[in-house]
Amino acid sequence: MSTTALKEWPLWEVFVRSKQGLEHKHCGSLHAADAQQALQMARDVYTRRQEGVSIWVLPSASITASAPEDKESMFEPAADKIYRHPTFYEIPDEVGHM
């Protein structure tokens, strides 16, 4: 295993689930030496006000993100296709909130 010392701790993205049944939501990032430490720090930084019941952390480096300059070609073509939204249906009352 390589033992090259890092000058800075790597960056981690933090996801918190606010209650059972809901999804984990991205809430921020932090620097930590490893995954376990990142988890503990996330607990201390992001769940102090009862924000969560579960935490995920993952290395920021493992995220592949779309480039801001690709925004026009990636997202704008969807702008004029409102027929893709399922808003043209009558929803029966019995279905309740969707």
Partner: peptide
């Protein structure tokens, strides 16, 4: 020593 420990 770091912000996270300050909070901890």
């Amino acid at each position: 020593p770091i912000l996270e420990e300050d909070l901890a």
